[in-house]
Structure formats: C-alpha cells, structure tokens
Design a binder for these strands. Structure first.
Length: 483
RNA sequence: GGCGAUGUGGCCGAGUGGUCAGGCAAGGGUCUGCAAAACCCUCUACAGCGGUUCGAUUCCGCUCGUCGCCUCCA
C-alpha cells in the first residue's frame, strides 16, 4: 500500500517516505524563458503535475517549487539582439508559459521563484564555497566549483570524473577553468553580457550567477536544506543536478534531496526534436492548424492523454497518428461517462457494479503507486468501461445510482489524470433551432418519414452534431472543432 | 572512447518465469427503419542466435538495430 518511485540516485524502485509525515517538498526544474516551451518540455511538466496530483490524491500535502530561469546565455543573447532590458525580453515568455500550463491543466506550484530575484541567496552559497576552498577564481574573475574537492561528484549521474571527455562540446580554451568539468558559479561580466550584470557584490565582482546555483539557492529558500523530491528531464541528471548536489551539500552539511525523479525525452517521428528537421512543436503549434503539418487544431487534452499513455521513464515518440488515437480514446471515455449518466432505472446501487468500481479504483491506485504507471492505470479505466458498457447492453439499463457511481469514480480518478473530464461533460448548449430540428426529426421518424428524418440528421451532422438513437431516446455528441 | 537505456502483434504501448494488458486502426457478426454508439469474434506479439529451466517474451551471454548522456538541452 505504499508508493514507490524509481530513484535516479540508487537506480532502483524505493518506497517513498517523506521527511515529515503527510507532507512532501517537491522541487521541479522549470523553464528557461527565452522562447516558447515545446511539447518535450511539457512532457516533463505534465509528469511533474501527475506526480503532484497523485501525491495529493494519496493524502499528502505538497509544497512544490518551480524555478523560472530568467537570466541565462540565450536570454542574454536575445536581450542584446533586441536591445531591450532583459525583463522585457522574458516577460512575454513567462506569460505564455503560464497560459500553456493552464491549457494542459497543469496545476500551479506553490512558488515560481525567478532566478533574478534570488541572486542574494546564490551569492551566499558562493561565498560559503569560496570560504571552504571548494571554489576558485579564474583569471578573468569568474568563479568555478572545483569538483575535485567533492569526492561524491558523479554519484547521481553514475559517472567517473576521470571518464569525462573534456572538450566534447565546448572548446576548452574558451574557459579559464582548472579542469574542464569544473562548473561556473559566478560568471565575470564581459562585453557580450551588455547591460546584464550584478555589481553589488564587491567580493565577487561585476558579473552574473551561473546556471546551476539558482536551483540550490531557491530550493533552500523555499524547501529547506533537505527535502523530499527533485525532478527534471533526464538531460538534467548530468551535469545540472549533479552540480546542484555538489555545490549545496557542503554549504548545508546535509543531504540535499532524498528522491531524484527524471522523465525521459519525447521524440518526434523517432528523431530528436529540432528546428532544423521541422519537427519542433510548441503546444501553440498543435492548437493552431496553420502551424503544424497535420493542418488541424488539436485539443490540448488529447495532447495530455497522449503524454499519459506512455510511462514517464520511457521515451515517447510523438506522432500525429498517436495524437489522433489519444484524442479518440479520451473521447471514448467521455462517451462512456455520458452513457452512464443517462441510466435511469432503479435507485439502488447494484452490488456487482459497486464491486467493479472498487476493483477499478484499487487497480488504478496500485498502478499509480508503482512509480506512476499511467498506462496501466488507464488500462484499469478501460477495463471498467468495457465491462459497464457490456452490462448496459445486456440489461438496457444499469440504474441511475449505479451509473452515477461509475461517473463519480472516473471523475474522482481524473483528479489524478487531469483530463478535464468533468468540464468536458458539461455539454455545450444546442441552439433553439437545433433542438427544434431534433424534435422535428423525431416526429418524422414516428411518422416513418425516414427520408426527411435522415435529411435533418445530415444537416445536424454538418453543424458538428451527431445524433444517436438509443432505447432511452435520442442523444447527441458535439464535435467542437466543427461548430 | 566512457557510461547507460532500449528493441512487444498494422500503429502506439504496459507487463510477467507457466490463463488476459490496454488503446487506436482493420475485417466479420449482433443490435438498429437506416445510421451512430455499444457489445461479441478475428488479426493467435514479444529483434536474432545460443544458454539456464520441467517451462522464457520475462533470467544469463553473444550478435544486430535504435537511442540518450559525457559542461549550462525537459
């Protein structure tokens, strides 16, 4: 009955035990706001949202922090190119980021600290590292962490320091470091930085913080020296998270984080997303028929379903075919709920249905408890769907109470999945003329004037309203994209 | 070069040492005025080659394929 997570630190599934009973401190690496986030980024944010939702579903109080990196090389480059203050460059992307979170039904974290507002905290850490002799100043005035002073370096990433291939991606002579794997804590100002610098720390000199240090400073500030869970994409394991550990633990004298969770990357058509290949999609691209090759406006909840359809530690190959399937599957779930809601018969809850419901809940929770196994959790939901459909077909009616109980369960589980099922169930209203057309068709059918009835049905179909004749009467489904 | 993943039926995608994942698509059927929806059936999968085992898709080895990280990319 316990929750287990795959901890990158130990490379194994471990029972989750929070530092404080009933409470979870969660740090989730957030966006660098120099551009719109792409769907690969959102895979990670949806994973983190799912983690948060499941923990809350299981009764934990979650304190989540997500940083906003608003000072960084690419941002500075953009700032120089556009000749505007850095905050003006980042503001629209920060706003867009929150819009996209809402769009995907990602719950808000408790805090979204910005790097530029926590430089004091970072400086404090850097001073401590300097004082301990763990950091050094290079000739140009930049300050680097000396990884040779941290014996544990490489433990998270399972990397031997000697194996690091120096200069693999950056010409070593660009840096003034003692060894290639040392990382910047403070970058001395140079002309390329333009107006971006901090000069109120005389002991550090005019410059700006390195990237890794922000997460250490902000997590300490909001979550304390030692907290439960830290997450990010797999690419953050090394060097980012490894560096966070190295620079934080000597300052606090405590273990930094108990559980490291990392989500795998999303690929597009079996390849890494890149602007060059033209397979680079932002969420906005998927919602805009002009901006993606499918030429369709996709429902963000179809995107979310697609992301949930693959376990977070497996690579996910994004395809429009897959997105289509995800959309249809979620639609099938909604159709199922609508049908359940139409059940009218006896008031009492069928005991077998009650059993099915409990079994489904148990299977769903067990799957989620086991390292957030969403595919298996969804399978439990589909098993219920099939079973209940079958029962309704057999008896033509399940009973109002039983139907409602099924709906209640699924909506309850959607607190974890976040597929906006309840909202989607609030059917858009039909126009009075459309209601009249439906009534007219019913009259025509009664009079056995099927030609007329079918004509009316076609007209409604063209308006995005699909009619279905059932024993309980006529129902309809609305395709919002055709209205 | 170092470290590490992974290869499941038309597509996507869980999982397990010995009945079943699940979704989407396809074909057939039931139901229906016709549709739609739903249900039933079918498509009998686990890269290849060895090994361990009474038995392997599941464990081990090798081969092949794909992919990730190795300094600021979720």
């Amino acid at each position: 009955m316990s929750i287990r997570f795959f901890n990158t630190m130990t490379r194994s599934l471990q029972e989750f035990r929070p530092l404080e009973p009933g409470r979870v401190g969660l740090y989730t690496c957030g966006p660098t706001v120099y551009d719109y986030a792409h769907i690969g980024n959102f895979r990670t944010y949806v994973f983190e949202d799912l983690l948060r939702r499941h923990l809350r579903f299981r009764g934990y109080e979650v304190l989540q922090v997500m940083n906003i990196t608003d000072v960084e090389d690419k941002i500075i480059r953009k700032t120089r190119m556009e000749g505007r203050p850095m905050s003006e460059v980042t503001a629209p992307y920060i706003e867009a980021f929150f819009q996209d979170l809402d769009c995907l039904n990602i719950q808000r974290a408790e805090h979204y600290p910005r790097a530029t507002e926590h430089v004091d905290g970072m400086v404090e850490l850097i001073r401590s590292l300097l004082a301990q002799g763990l950091a050094y100043r290079s000739e140009d005035g930049s300050i680097y962490f000396d990884i040779s002073k941290f014996p544990e370096y490489g433990r998270l990433a399972h990397i031997q320091v000697e194996d690091l291939r120096s200069g693999a991606r950056v010409a070593q002579d660009e840096y003034d470091k003692e060894r290639a794997a040392d990382f910047a804590l403070w970058k001395a100002w140079d002309e390329g930085d333009g107006e971006v610098f901090w000069d109120r720390y005389p002991d550090l000199g005019k410059g700006r913080p390195g990237w890794h240090i922000e997460c250490s400073a902000m997590s300490i500030r909001y979550l304390g020296n030692h907290f439960d869970i830290h997450t990010g994409g797999v690419d953050n394991i090394f060097p980012h998270h490894q560096n966070e550990i190295a620079q934080t633990e000597p300052c606090t004298g405590e273990t930094f984080v108990n559980y490291w969770l990392h989500s795998e990357h999303l690929q597009v058509e079996s390849q890494k997303m890149s602007k060059k290949l033209g397979n680079f999609f932002t969420l906005r691209d998927l919602l805009d028929p002009q901006a993606n090759p499918s030429g369709r406006a996709w429902d963000p909840m179809a995107v979310r379903y697609l992301l949930l359809g693959t376990h977070y530690r497996s690579r996910l190959d994004f395809t429009f075919k897959g997105l289509q399937a995800a959309m249809e599957t979620r639609q099938g779930l909604l159709d199922f709920l609508r049908r359940c809601r139409m059940q009218q018969g006896t008031e009492s809850l069928d005991s077998e249905v009650a059993e099915e419901i409990e079994a489904t809940r148990a299977a769903f929770v067990a799957a989620m408890d086991e390292d957030l196994n969403t595919p298996e959790a969804l399978a439990a939901l589909h098993a219920l769907r099939r079973e209940i459909h079958r029962r309704i077909d057999e008896r033509t009616d399940l009973g109002r109470a039983s139907g409602q109980a099924v709906v209640d369960l699924v909506l309850d589980l959607d607190r974890v999945l976040g597929l906006r099922l309840e909202e989607a169930l609030e059917e858009p209203e039909l126009l009075p003329e459309e209601t009249a057309m439906i009534d007219e068709r019913q009259a025509a059918r009664k009079a056995r004037d099927f030609a007329r009835a079918d004509r009316l049905r076609d007209e409604l179909e063209a308006r995005g309203i699909r009619l279905e004749d059932t024993p309980q009467g006529v129902t309809w489904k609305i395709d919002p994209s055709r209205r």
